[in-house]
Design a protein around this nucleic acid. Sequence first.
DNA 1: TCAACGACTAGAACCGCGTTCTGTCGTGGT
DNA 2: ACCACGACAGAACGCGGTTCTAGTCGTTGA
Lengths: 210, 210
Amino acid sequence: MAKEETLPQPVSTMTPAQLERRRRLTDTVIEMIDQMGPEQLQMRDVAERSGVALGTAYRYFSSKDHLLAAAWADWQRRLTDRVRAEVSRDASRNRSAPGGACTRVQAFLSRETRAFQRHPNFARLVAYVEVSSDPFASEELAGLRSDNFATLVALMDGVPADVVRPAMTAINATLGSGLTAWICGRLTFADFSRQLEEVVRLILGPYDQA
Amino acid sequence: MAKEETLPQPVSTMTPAQLERRRRLTDTVIEMIDQMGPEQLQMRDVAERSGVALGTAYRYFSSKDHLLAAAWADWQRRLTDRVRAEVSRDASRNRSAPGGACTRVQAFLSRETRAFQRHPNFARLVAYVEVSSDPFASEELAGLRSDNFATLVALMDGVPADVVRPAMTAINATLGSGLTAWICGRLTFADFSRQLEEVVRLILGPYDQA
DNA sequence: TCAACGACTAGAACCGCGTTCTGTCGTGGT
DNA sequence: ACCACGACAGAACGCGGTTCTAGTCGTTGA
């Protein structure tokens, strides 16, 4: 009688039609989040607007948290890809500075945070998802985390190996906390980005014009 | 007809009996949180166990979030006071090292995190409260934040003034994010405290044996 | 070709829980 | 003594995530 319920169907075993449905769900969330916070967003509406039956949505995602986490991961990856491309393009054109690690990281973060400023509900989404205890949601986060890891490591060359890890930890944390504080009204956006800059300069400043 | 509803009755205007009721509520929460996460905790139960009518609770706190935030602030203040006392006692006895800023901050944080390790549900509470959008809850947080600020500043003497602020920001953020990641199962406690140590050393290390 | 089966759909139903409401009572200020 | 107001116990409300029901359809395997 093992009620294994392996879970919301592993992505790898999905047929193309299923992947398509799954994508419609996450895309719809991304679309809707732009206009409402994660708590306003209702499963019923997502289902309806994506043209997937509510019950079916739950075959793909274990919970609202899981769906939101997946959608966020998706959005974040697109954003990061775009920003990374811009930053490295600017760097290779050698625009605007010689560019040490500090400068590069600043540029990267400033673009990312601006994206959040333009889409505050995604910042809310981050806050919402980060505290979710749904293990499937956490899994989604973990994947994303390691992507970010790679990205930041790449931006930090010229920085001693034993500095990289704690530097990333601290910067990521400052980004995350600041975002939440901003979104909850405990910090203005200006203060948030100033804080972030200060922290990056403090940590990475010494390695800049290597 | 101004429906001003000044709101959950300002603390300063409360009669002793009211303050007593308010305290019973927060104390009950603190008591209960030790045995269940914040989402398990129900307003009905808090009301019943504290001997305050449910409706009345809402005259003191605008929402569950607000109540939880107040309770957390209370617990955190007690904890910080205790830890601060221990740390400064140890320091004045000059035990265990000469103790620069880095060492002092490490000691402080390590005690604080151990308290969370012993009471994981308070870590969940932190995560829960930090993302609350209830303005009264945020207010509670803001008060707490400035207390912490003072505490950390005190621990960091010997550190250049322009380093103190970003250092605090980064350390606080690392603490907060790590706590959440731990509690959500994305980090082991050991990894969490190692990360925190690394960050503190990275940032404050240079100013240690002044 | 024809079951059998599994996944999909629309929508209703379920249910936990924060929040609000009702009716009553006790009390402190005038 | 009076009355307005806060407290009380408990019922009632409402929202929204999740689950269930019936019925449909496409694929598979004999």
